[in-house]
Amino acid sequence: MLKRLSHLRFAKINSIGISSVFQAGDTNEIDMNVKVFAVQRYIPLYEAKEGSFNRDEYQIFQQPAVKPLPETGIQSAFCHEVPSIRVRSVNIQGVSSSSVFHIGSASAVCGDARVKHIREIPFSNSQSSQS
């Protein structure tokens, strides 16, 4: 891993989401993983059996993550004339689920986000007449 000194003068971050990383400096490996199950209802009525989540019912949580093949046969050489990374300021509105904002060097960065969002909204007659 290339090692350089990271200088960050000012960072303003509004929001860092679930399983996300703000990293200033070198790191060997960053691995983020998040699985989200959300139910949104127009009228918040819930049955007594709800709340126990069975991930076997939802295929998105069972499938293996798709990862790129490792690089093969590529040779590279780097020469850093300035041995530091300098960032004056950064203003971040948001770093979302399983995301990275990184200043520095990293050997490996992996991220995985899976979201199952169910919206239960009542069907109205006005929608069917416009079809």
Results as ranks from 00 to 15, higher is better:
residue 112 D to H: 10
residue 112 D to E: 15
residue 56 D to G: 09
residue 27 T to P: 02
residue 43 I to K: 14
residue 115 V to H: 11
residue 106 A to R: 01
residue 101 F to S: 00
residue 124 S to G: 07
residue 112 D to N: 12
residue 25 G to Q: 03
residue 4 R to Q: 11
residue 52 S to Q: 12
residue 76 S to W: 14
residue 117 H to F: 12
residue 90 V to I: 15
residue 30 I to R: 03
residue 116 K to L: 15
residue 100 V to Q: 02
residue 25 G to R: 01
residue 52 S to Y: 10
residue 6 S to Q: 08
residue 32 M to V: 08
residue 86 R to V: 04
residue 23 Q to H: 05
residue 84 S to N: 08
residue 19 S to K: 09
residue 13 I to G: 03
residue 86 R to F: 07
residue 25 G to V: 01
residue 34 V to T: 15
residue 46 Y to N: 08
residue 71 E to H: 06
residue 14 N to W: 07
residue 98 S to R: 02
residue 105 S to Q: 06
residue 127 Q to F: 10
residue 67 K to N: 11
residue 122 P to R: 11
residue 21 V to T: 15
residue 119 R to I: 15
residue 106 A to M: 05
residue 76 S to R: 13
residue 109 V to S: 05
residue 96 S to L: 07
residue 5 L to Q: 13
residue 59 Q to S: 13
residue 22 F to K: 01
residue 85 I to Q: 01
residue 90 V to F: 02
residue 115 V to P: 00
residue 126 S to G: 10
residue 14 N to M: 10
residue 70 P to H: 05
residue 71 E to A: 11
residue 39 V to E: 13
residue 18 I to C: 03
residue 53 F to M: 04
residue 15 S to G: 06
residue 109 V to C: 05
residue 115 V to S: 11
residue 76 S to I: 08
residue 65 A to F: 09
residue 45 L to M: 13
residue 17 G to V: 00
residue 54 N to V: 08
